[in-house]
Simulated scan of single mutants.
Amino acid sequence: MHVFIGGTASGKRQRVAERYPEARWRDADEMMRRVPGAGAGPAIDDGDTLVISGWLAWLEAELENELENQRENESASADDDRLGRRWREAFTGWASSPGRRVLVLDEVGRGIVPVDPAQRRLRDLMGWLSQDAVRLASQVHYVRHGLTMRLDGKEATAAGRAD
């Protein structure tokens, strides 16, 4: 699995398209529906190179669904754990698949911390999702201002999950 991470309009998509011109692009929502136990959609060719983007939008939609279907007696942390298990299961499967999986992730941890608790939670979840993806990735590239920097996997995973 290969991860490209950077802020909005940083040049991630362009760098991925240059590196993987043969890739088919898929939305995170579509791919997460294909994870076993999630009402999996049609199978995909495991030999394909798939670029999976739209992770922030997927998280926003999941949180919106959670609000609409609020579970009594369950905390946000229980829901966060449930979401985390879902993406970790997907990442683990993709990291070991014969096809190439490229994740395009939005870095949202810089800048002003939102006052709204829901927005802070979204940022936290995106950060945890990114950390889990990086831990399983064989390569990680950070993109900023169109410049790409490879991050060494040993350094990227040695720090562990900082909460």
Rank of each mutant, 00 (worst) to 15 (best):
V3A: 06
V3L: 01
F4I: 02
G6R: 05
S10G: 05
K12T: 03
R13Y: 04
V16Q: 09
R19P: 01
E22N: 14
A23F: 00
R24I: 05
W25L: 07
R26A: 13
D27I: 07
A28F: 04
D29R: 15
R33D: 03
R34E: 07
G37P: 02
A38P: 00
A38M: 14
G39H: 13
G39P: 03
G39M: 12
G41T: 12
G41Y: 08
I44S: 01
I44C: 03
D45R: 14
D45E: 14
D46S: 07
L50R: 08
L50T: 06
I52Y: 06
I52N: 05
G54F: 05
L56P: 01
L56Q: 14
W58Y: 15
E60N: 12
E60V: 11
E60H: 11
A61S: 13
L63K: 11
L63I: 06
E64Q: 15
E64R: 15
E68K: 15
N69K: 15
Q70V: 04
N73P: 01
A78M: 10
A78D: 13
A78G: 04
D79K: 12
D81H: 13
D81R: 15
D81N: 12
R82V: 00
G84K: 11
R85G: 05
R86Q: 12
R86N: 07
R88P: 03
F91H: 07
W94Y: 09
R101I: 08
R101K: 14
L103Y: 01
E107A: 09
I112Q: 06
V113H: 10
V115F: 06
P117H: 11
P117L: 09
A118K: 13
A118L: 14
Q119D: 11
Q119V: 00
Q119L: 14
L122V: 01
D124S: 12
D124K: 15
D124Y: 06
L125V: 05
L125Y: 02
L125R: 14
M126F: 00
G127D: 09
W128C: 01
D132G: 11
A133K: 10
L136N: 09
L136G: 04
A137F: 02
A137R: 13
V140R: 10
V140M: 03
V140C: 11
Y142P: 01
Y142T: 07
H145P: 00
T148Y: 00
M149A: 08
R150L: 02
D152W: 06
G153H: 08
K154A: 08
T157Y: 01
A158M: 06
R161M: 07
D163W: 10
D163E: 06
